[in-house]
Amino acid sequence: MEMSQVVADALARHIELFPPVDVEILDETTPPRKPVTRKAKLLFTSGRGNPIQRTGWAYPWRKAVEAVDGVPEGFGYHGLRHYFATLLAVAR
């Protein structure tokens, strides 16, 4: 599926304001007994330029969900992904 122009424009603006950051990350596809780090360019990082950890989003996400009427309790990232995919399918 193609990226919408709105998303492409927002992403381009983000890259202008916050260029990709070179970081070393743990490659989780490697065997656990032989972990490997590799270089990666990240578009979204913490304020300190580190990879964003999933746990860092839990509190702000929960507060954002609580602030919106009609969003079911416990609505998470996975639900958001499905919701967005549904919107894209319906918009076609």
Rank of each mutant, 00 (worst) to 15 (best):
I25G: 00
T86K: 14
T45R: 00
A12I: 02
D27V: 02
L80A: 10
R38Q: 12
T29Y: 03
G74L: 07
P60R: 07
A91L: 07
M1S: 13
P31W: 02
V6N: 09
P35T: 05
V71Q: 05
A91Y: 08
L88S: 15
D22N: 11
F84L: 15
T55N: 15
V21K: 10
P51N: 05
A8Q: 13
P35I: 02
A67D: 10
P31L: 04
P60F: 01
L11D: 12
A64W: 11
D9W: 01
G56H: 05
V90F: 04
H14K: 03
L88W: 13
H82D: 13
R38P: 03
D22E: 08
T45F: 03
L11Y: 10
R81H: 15
P60H: 07
Y83K: 13
T86F: 06
G47I: 03
T45W: 00
A10E: 05
L87N: 06
N50F: 10
L80F: 14
A12R: 07
H14E: 08
A58P: 03
A8V: 04
R62M: 11
R92W: 13
Q53I: 07
V71C: 07
D27H: 03
L87W: 09
E2I: 09
G74D: 08
P20I: 01
V7Y: 08
E2Q: 08
K34P: 00
L42K: 02
V90W: 07
W57G: 02
R92E: 14
P60N: 08
R13G: 04
T29V: 05
R81S: 15
L87I: 11
V6Q: 08
V36F: 12
E16G: 03
V90P: 00
E28L: 15
W61L: 03
R48M: 15
A89V: 14
M3E: 10
T45H: 04
I15N: 04
P51D: 04
D69F: 08
L26V: 07
P32Y: 05
I52H: 05
K41E: 06
K34M: 08
W57S: 10
E73Y: 01
D69G: 13
S4T: 12
V23C: 01
V21L: 01
A58N: 12
A40P: 00
L26P: 01
P60V: 04
D69W: 05
E73L: 04
G70M: 09
D9A: 11
N50G: 15
V68Y: 07
P35G: 06
A40Y: 02
T29Q: 04
P60C: 06
V71M: 12
G47N: 11
R48C: 13
G79K: 13
S46Q: 10
P72D: 09
T55R: 14
W57T: 12
E24W: 09
H14G: 04
